[in-house]
Simulated assay, not measured.
Amino acid sequence: MKLLVCAMETSSNIHLKELKKHLSDDIELVGVFDKELGNPMYDLTALAIMGFIDALKKLRFFFKLRDELVEAAATCDKVLLMDSSGFNLPLAKKLKQKYPNKEIIYYILPQAWAWKKGRVKKLEAYCSKLCSIIPFESELYTQKDKITYVGHPLLDEIHHFKEKLTQSNKIAFMPGSRKTEIKNLMPIFKELIKLIPNKEYILIIPSKFDDEYISRTYGDISNFTISRQAHETLQQSEYAFICSGTATLEAALIGTPFTLSYIAKKLDYKIGRTFVKLPYIGLANIFFDKMGKKCIHSEFLQEDVSVEALLDDYNNMNKDKFFEDSKLLREYLKNGSSKNVANIIQN
Rank of each mutant, 00 (worst) to 15 (best):
residue 268 D to C: 06
residue 39 N to G: 04
residue 16 L to D: 10
residue 183 K to I: 14
residue 189 F to Q: 06
residue 80 L to E: 04
residue 21 K to I: 02
residue 134 I to Y: 05
residue 219 G to P: 08
residue 209 F to Q: 06
residue 235 Q to V: 00
residue 126 Y to K: 03
residue 338 S to C: 13
residue 185 L to C: 11
residue 227 S to Y: 12
residue 66 R to A: 12
residue 58 K to C: 00
residue 37 L to D: 02
residue 144 K to Q: 09
residue 108 I to L: 15
residue 244 S to E: 03
residue 339 K to E: 11
residue 302 Q to C: 10
residue 188 I to Y: 05
residue 206 P to W: 06
residue 218 Y to D: 08
residue 158 I to F: 02
residue 271 I to D: 00
residue 47 L to G: 11
residue 248 T to F: 03
residue 78 K to Q: 06
residue 15 H to V: 04
residue 247 A to H: 03
residue 258 F to Q: 15
residue 57 K to Q: 05
residue 281 I to G: 02
residue 131 C to R: 14
residue 3 L to K: 08
residue 112 A to G: 01
residue 249 L to V: 00
residue 55 A to H: 00
residue 189 F to M: 14
residue 32 V to N: 09
residue 129 K to V: 01
residue 128 S to G: 07
residue 205 I to L: 08
residue 202 I to N: 01
residue 2 K to F: 08
residue 84 S to I: 13
residue 318 N to F: 07
residue 227 S to M: 06
residue 256 T to F: 03
residue 311 L to S: 02
residue 237 S to P: 07
residue 12 S to R: 11
residue 233 T to S: 10
residue 9 E to L: 14
residue 236 Q to K: 14
residue 327 K to Q: 07
residue 42 Y to V: 15
residue 75 T to Q: 11
residue 164 K to Q: 03
residue 109 L to E: 04
residue 190 K to V: 00
residue 79 V to E: 01
residue 291 M to S: 06
residue 58 K to N: 08
residue 36 E to I: 11
residue 40 P to F: 01
residue 162 K to H: 02
residue 334 K to M: 11
residue 204 I to C: 04
residue 208 K to S: 14
residue 30 V to E: 10
residue 136 F to T: 14
residue 120 V to P: 07
residue 332 Y to C: 09
residue 270 K to T: 13
residue 48 A to F: 11
residue 53 I to R: 05
residue 188 I to T: 09
residue 43 D to K: 15
residue 156 D to V: 14
residue 335 N to V: 11
residue 174 M to P: 02
residue 70 V to I: 09
residue 258 F to P: 06
residue 150 V to L: 10
residue 239 Y to N: 06
residue 46 A to P: 06
residue 51 G to E: 00
residue 244 S to A: 10
residue 306 S to W: 09
residue 222 S to W: 05
residue 258 F to E: 11
residue 103 E to N: 13
residue 235 Q to H: 04
residue 125 A to H: 08
residue 64 K to C: 03
residue 164 K to V: 04
residue 207 S to A: 08
residue 225 T to H: 15
residue 111 Q to C: 12
residue 164 K to C: 00
residue 109 L to A: 10
residue 225 T to W: 15
residue 312 D to K: 14
residue 312 D to H: 09
residue 7 A to C: 07
residue 168 S to F: 00
residue 191 E to I: 05
residue 288 F to L: 08
residue 205 I to A: 13
residue 167 Q to P: 00
residue 67 D to W: 12
residue 347 N to I: 07
residue 293 K to R: 14
residue 187 P to Y: 13
residue 142 T to V: 15
residue 241 F to H: 10
residue 251 A to D: 01
residue 24 S to V: 09
residue 101 N to M: 15
residue 121 K to Y: 12
residue 19 L to G: 03
residue 29 L to W: 13
residue 333 L to Q: 01
residue 132 S to D: 03
residue 235 Q to E: 05
residue 185 L to W: 02
residue 149 Y to F: 15
residue 261 S to E: 09
residue 261 S to T: 12
residue 314 Y to Q: 00
residue 67 D to R: 12
residue 89 L to N: 01
residue 266 K to M: 10
residue 295 C to W: 15
residue 268 D to G: 08
residue 321 K to M: 13
residue 297 H to D: 05
residue 183 K to H: 08
residue 158 I to H: 01
residue 189 F to S: 07
residue 7 A to H: 02
residue 160 H to I: 07
residue 169 N to A: 11
residue 256 T to Y: 04
residue 209 F to W: 07
residue 103 E to H: 14
residue 336 G to S: 07
